[in-house]
Design a protein around this nucleic acid. Sequence first.
DNA 1: CCTATCGGTAAGTGATAACTTACCGATGTG
DNA 2: CACATCGGTAAGTTATCACTTACCGATAGG
Lengths: 111, 111
Amino acid sequence: MAARAYADDAFEALGDPTRRQIFRLLGRGERSVGEIAVQLPVSRPAVSQHLRILKEAELVSDRPDGVRRLYSVRRTGLEALRTDLEHMWDSALAEYAMAAETGAGDERSDR
Amino acid sequence: MAARAYADDAFEALGDPTRRQIFRLLGRGERSVGEIAVQLPVSRPAVSQHLRILKEAELVSDRPDGVRRLYSVRRTGLEALRTDLEHMWDSALAEYAMAAETGAGDERSDR
DNA sequence: CCTATCGGTAAGTGATAACTTACCGATGTG
DNA sequence: CACATCGGTAAGTTATCACTTACCGATAGG
């Protein structure tokens, strides 16, 4: 219970290209806010704001490190997203099974 | 080559809650535009516009059926999304491995 | 044919969300 | 105990995007 809606937050969070960049960057190791900002075409406050949203979606976590604050990827949100996507995938497959019975019986890579 | 950027489109497309609703609805079987619209709190043209975006992201396909037009889920976009997510997942796991070597050697479900 | 249904497109509107600059508190350093 | 660095927050601006109504072409049916 109360395990859902996380995936929705995660979809929402990764719907933004800048946040995807940030998230992918963190996938290569933990980074401070400043380190992230210099790699992106946006200001440091903008990065802070994006990080808050990623954090709310359980996609990243942070820990203090002196004056700085290190952010790193987190499994929780990603896992929610993964599970959700799996359901969609299953639905899609079920659809093809139905279509195969109804229509012609050939196998195609696409459709 | 030229197989990327699809995932970006897919992330973008599913970043919107209404489009997620539409996509999940189609996961239960193909539907006409009108059939989708009556189930949602938005107008039919709005659904049409959403469907165009989902189609560009290769998440749905359509076929004519008399006056109507039937939409159904498509694998391509979903697969791109899945692959992309898998990369993120791997990055996240690699991160934990690194952190485990550096820090204390205990295993936790979260972090 | 005339008429109805269905759906895509055009045009316009309003909300929102991504960004900026300015400021402030917290931590670490000479 | 100044002083600098770092990052979060506030406030304001702007562009984008989700939505609406109006219209139009295409197919089907009497």
